[in-house]
């Protein structure tokens, strides 16, 4: 439970590349496996499709999203439950994924990645022949 909590919007530690000032957040993700593909959904509210960078290199899938600041410094906050900053998270992807056909879409603050399984990793139905 504690670990899960920490995962939620915890500023990243250690391996962040700071492209600009401010904190980076780990987006929350859901990963679902289907027969043909793996679907990854990440909650990254407050960005735009052109500011999202999905990169696949050396088996590492990286999601980076630049978020426009919307909590201007100097504003009088009565309540502030979240921070605004860029999102960054990486995943190791096995060879069973066909990297060339990864697709991404962004709607309502949710990034959805479709990671198609490589031909070899897909389930295949093998017909059983009747031998006489």
């Amino acid at each position: 439970m504690a670990d899960e909590k920490r995962m939620r919007r915890t500023p990243e530690e250690g391996h962040v590349e700071h492209l600009r000032q401010g904190v980076c957040y780990l987006p929350l993700v859901d990963i679902v496996e289907k027969a043909e593909e793996i679907i990854l959904k990440a909650d990254i509210p407050g960005t735009r499709p052109e500011n999202i960078d999905v990169n696949f290199e050396d088996g590492i899938l990286t999601i980076y999203a630049k978020v426009d600041p919307r909590q201007e410094p100097g504003t009088q906050y009565l309540l502030r439950e979240y921070g605004v900053g860029d999102y960054h998270r990486s995943f190791q992807v096995s060879e069973a994924i066909d990297a060339s056909r990864i697709t991404a879409e962004y709607a309502d603050g949710v990034l959805t990645l479709h990671l198609p399984k490589a031909e070899a990793a897909r389930p295949r139905k093998i017909p059983v022949q009747v031998s006489s």
Binding site: D30, V32, E33, K34, D43
Partner: peptide, 9 residues
């Protein structure tokens, strides 16, 4: 489907 990881609420 099978869920690997579920963090979103």
């Amino acid at each position: 489907a099978g869920v690997y990881q579920s963090e979103c609420r």
